[in-house]
Amino acid sequence: MSKIGDDNPFIPVRIAVLTVSDTRSLEEDRSGQVLVDRLTKAGHILADRKILRDERDQIANQLRAWVADDGVDVVISTGGTGLTGRDVTVEAHRDVYEKEIDAFSTLFTLISYEKIGTSAVQSRATAGVAGGTYLFALPGSPGACKDAWDGILEKQLDYRHPPCNFVEIMPRLDEHLRRK
Rank of each mutant, 00 (worst) to 15 (best):
A42Q: 11
G85F: 02
R94Q: 15
L46C: 04
Y97P: 07
G132Y: 02
L46Y: 01
S123N: 06
L83F: 12
L107H: 12
A92N: 03
G82C: 03
D69H: 07
V34N: 04
V121C: 10
L110G: 12
Q58C: 12
E98G: 13
L83A: 09
Q62P: 03
V129C: 09
K50L: 14
D57N: 15
R56Y: 03
Q62V: 10
D73T: 08
V74D: 02
A65Q: 14
K146M: 12
K99G: 09
L107V: 14
Y134T: 01
T40E: 14
T133V: 15
S141K: 02
S112I: 00
P139D: 02
D102L: 15
Q58N: 14
D87V: 02
R124I: 00
D147F: 03
A68K: 13
I59A: 07
G71H: 11
R49E: 05
V72L: 05
N61Y: 09
K41S: 14
V36C: 10
G128C: 10
D48C: 09
S141Y: 01
L35C: 06
T126R: 07
S141C: 05
G85L: 04
E91R: 11
K50D: 13
D37L: 03
A68S: 15
A137L: 04
Q62Y: 08
K99I: 14
D95T: 05
P139V: 06
L39W: 00
L35W: 00
T84Q: 04
I116L: 05
V36K: 10
G79S: 06
G43S: 05
F104L: 10
G85R: 07
G143F: 02
K99L: 15
S119I: 06
V88S: 02
I101W: 04
V90N: 00
G128H: 05
D87A: 08
L110P: 07
L46A: 04
I101G: 03
A103M: 13
G80H: 05
I76F: 06
Q58R: 15
V88E: 00
W149H: 08
A137N: 08
T126C: 14
T133H: 09
T133M: 09
A42L: 08
V121Q: 10
Y113I: 07
V129F: 07
Q58E: 15
L63M: 14
I76Y: 01
V36Q: 08
G140W: 00
V129S: 04
Q58K: 15
D70M: 12
G117K: 13
V74H: 05
E100S: 13
W66C: 06
I45F: 02
V36I: 13
L63R: 02
Y134K: 10
K115D: 11
D54F: 01
I101Y: 04
K99F: 15
A137W: 01
T89S: 14
S105F: 12
A120P: 02
K146C: 11
V88W: 01
L39P: 00
L63E: 06
A103Q: 13
I51T: 06
